[in-house]
Design a protein around this nucleic acid. Sequence first.
DNA 1: GCCTTCTGCTGCACTGAGTGTCACAACGAC
DNA 2: GTCGTTGTGACACTCAGTGCAGCAGAAGGC
Lengths: 247, 247
Amino acid sequence: MSSSSAAPAAKPPMRDALVEAAFRLFLERGYEHTTVDDIVALAGVGRRSFFRYFPSKEDVVFPDHERCLADMTAFLAASGEEHEPVRRVCDAARMVLLMYAENPTFSVQRYRLTKRVPGLRAYELSVVWRYERALAEYLRGRFAGRPDGTLRADVVAAAVVAAHNNALRSWLRSDGEGDAGTAVDHALGFVQRAFGRPAQPPVRAVHLLPPADAAEGRPDDVVVLVSRRDTPVWRVVQEWEAALGRA
Amino acid sequence: MSSSSAAPAAKPPMRDALVEAAFRLFLERGYEHTTVDDIVALAGVGRRSFFRYFPSKEDVVFPDHERCLADMTAFLAASGEEHEPVRRVCDAARMVLLMYAENPTFSVQRYRLTKRVPGLRAYELSVVWRYERALAEYLRGRFAGRPDGTLRADVVAAAVVAAHNNALRSWLRSDGEGDAGTAVDHALGFVQRAFGRPAQPPVRAVHLLPPADAAEGRPDDVVVLVSRRDTPVWRVVQEWEAALGRA
DNA sequence: GCCTTCTGCTGCACTGAGTGTCACAACGAC
DNA sequence: GTCGTTGTGACACTCAGTGCAGCAGAAGGC
């Protein structure tokens, strides 16, 4: 499909042949009932060559994550101070989705495989963990100096990964139907709303009223306290107590 | 040390002997340079018995996680509707800390081991993942019906685990000095403030500003706090601090 | 043309984790 | 005593992963 002329990177076809042969056998007789010898026999190459391209049998299932992780790391490293940190890691997470969306049928097949085989699930966890660490390291740098900088960085990174995977998996479960991008945007928006409070927020939260209780009834139950921002806390408490009539 | 009389559960000492022998060798010559044959030779048992007690070589490094996971699952299963969900999973996460704190020196040794050996790191990830899934499954049940129920469940579970591990690891890095409980409470408090808004929150709105005339003044200077009358004072202070971005 | 060197591939032997199977000993029930 | 059960050990086997040596072919100097 792509242009075959003027390709700058002449990638070894053996690697692709191994992936091809491996997935054919995995889908046919299962991952655990396929040996590396079976794969290399089908691909017509030597057994030693397999481990030249893939450090382990699991790696052949995730042939493109190494590149994607490198891309994400480069993306984050190239970020400047002008980017809002949480938004930035959300954008970085979207790169993973793009990789999955590049080849939907392959991604769906791999998803079914990893769902069934415990060993592959474990391997996938270590892959996801490396993405999460990349996000967390970036955030740690951006949150350096804040009171709970590393804590916030780790939690936000974990939340972003969880949200991304939630949307990604539901897309994979639906066999790649529907728009994955929209689902991931929605999920990441959820995280951004939870954590994306800027350091010095120009505009704050939206006002919510108790929906049910207030409707049916007694406005006396609601207290509204207006104060200047720089009011000390003890004054706020004092005013609060006074408003309740507790003096 | 413990009472030897009237012990209801007569646990096989062989399991403990294997853990003992394994860690002695792991610390002496490293995890990867210790074979299962070495372990069983030191413990004076047959090789086959090792795999009777531990499904894999990695399992001997985490001998008590299976029990802890079962305890956590039971704890969550026994939870009623009266418990606030996010608080409940935070309490569940604290059970893991308790297990680590039961035997600090062992936990610190294991931490150093898992930090160095990639294979053990990967295995630990799969253990942590099972905890996270237990929390997420519970939250999915509690959030069922909410618009983004499963998304919120997954994200909160990931955030709780990340916060817990952040505090736990910094405690382990300090060789088990200091109070781990306080650190974990602080970390989990961070997550609870981010997500713990209950379904019928005692404090509804936090911080807002006049929408129209915001342009001319400095809206940030004014804080409006709306709350139910019966809200405890400490919650008000908490929300006040949070609204000011002091977390 | 020939000869080097380097690179990528193959075959082979080896280690070590994990499994299936059978045999054997200790134990309690009857 | 004989049964069945349970825990244990010994052996053989599969298969992932590694180290090493050899070999073909391409690139380059002469």
